[in-house]
Amino acid sequence: MMACHFLRALFRIQQTSTSSSSSGRSRRIRRAAYASMAYSAGTRRAWSRALLRKLRSRARLRFPRRLSRAATPQRRDMDQAQVLRKLVPGGPSMDDCKLLEETADYIRCLTTQVRLMQTVMDSISS
């Protein structure tokens, strides 16, 4: 499901945006990747619902680049929970239990997506 969606989106991107710049294309590809993740997870999960809402509203997917403050060792639990809330889509409206659950599911989907992209990359480059 995820693979089909992602490959279709890639195909569409390749067909439509051959003239655009590579950064725009990469953004679109990333967007397609997250969209395929969200579609494959369905509306069952809070994070996928949040992602789908974001995608439908055509907002730019914005993920925090680098949280240098998160690496400092003296941060407490709650601050880290806040950091995690920012990372997981739809996180700000969750309580701690839900946040951890969604994080687990989100991590699973992300790992699958990353492996999918890597295999596509390998099949291209080899």
């Binding site: 590579s22 990469s26 590809i29 397609a32 993920f63 998160a70 991590i107 990353v114």
Partner: peptide, 21 residues
């Protein structure tokens, strides 16, 4: 966990860039 999620998201970004090129 935070580091892992961040690294995964960064990986997705990086791979999408690579795919675009």
């Amino acid at each position: 966990i935070i580091n892992y999620v961040q690294s995964l998201q960064r990986q997705v970004e990086f791979l999408s860039m690579k795919l675009a090129t």
